[in-house]
């Protein structure tokens, strides 16, 4: 554990809590992509299967359980409790275009050809692109509420901080995982356009509105 990893995890946790609170307090999931949230739930489920096979630390187990529970709670809020507020007409990204290449890539580029390892790899590749339906939704409606942009900023920062963690671990522990590094860089790059808008607009008190 190093400071970058810890800040990354805190940022990730913060993002998930912001989203849950936003939906709960406003009693609405308007502007939130249910498809992205489904992809994140699939990500955590397939990655954290090792919860039952491999103990790392109390911290690790605790965070995994929190991420899984929060993710399923979010799905429940969007698809059950506040279903009437779900903006289905704007959540039109075709996720099969993500699932297919992610599946093929995880079968080809993995550390070991075993079920649990392929599912871990699948989750890493899937996480990298899971936000695309949400970003697509923002670009389609041309705007995002401030709280939604805070969520996106925290979620995007998390993998960016992980990159610093990987650089640190490479030099300090001679540890590196090319699959995680490659996917993590892709994941962070996908947020760059959003980061620019967030810094130039939201932080200056303006709405996140895309040019027409």
């Amino acid at each position: 554990m190093n400071i970058f990893r810890l800040l990354g995890d805190v940022s990730h946790l913060l993002a998930i809590i912001i989203l849950l609170l936003k939906i709960w307090k406003t009693r609405s999931c308007a502007g939130i992509s249910g498809k992205s949230q489904l992809l994140f739930a699939l990500t955590y489920t397939t990655r954290y299967l090792d919860l039952v096979t491999n103990f790392v630390s109390v911290y690790n187990t605790f965070m995994k359980v929190v991420f899984l529970a929060a993710s399923y709670a979010t799905i429940w809020l969007i698809y059950m409790k506040f279903r009437a507020t779900y903006d289905q007409n704007h959540d039109t990204f075709r996720i099969e275009f993500l699932l297919l290449p992610v599946t093929i890539l995880s079968l080809v580029a993995n550390h070991e050809f075993t079920l649990i390892e392929i599912l871990w790899t699948w989750s890493i590749y899937l996480e990298a692109v899971a936000i695309l339906p949400q970003l697509f939704m923002v670009s389609k409606t041309g705007e995002a509420e401030s709280i939604t942009s805070h969520y996106l900023f925290a979620l995007g920062s998390y993998r960016g901080l992980y990159i610093l963690n990987w650089i640190y671990r490479y030099y300090m522990e001679s540890y590196y995982d090319l699959i995680a590094i490659f996917a993590g860089i892709l994941q962070t790059v996908l947020y760059c356009d959003f980061f620019y808008l967030y810094i130039t607009k939201v932080l200056r008190g303006q709405r996140l509105q895309l040019p027409a």
Binding site: H12, D50, F67, N110, H111, E112, W120, Y176, D177, I179
Partner: peptide, 10 residues
């Protein structure tokens, strides 16, 4: 590439 089984990150 390092082998799996020991993923210690989230």
């Amino acid at each position: 590439l390092r082998g799996g089984a020991g993923h210690d990150e989230l």
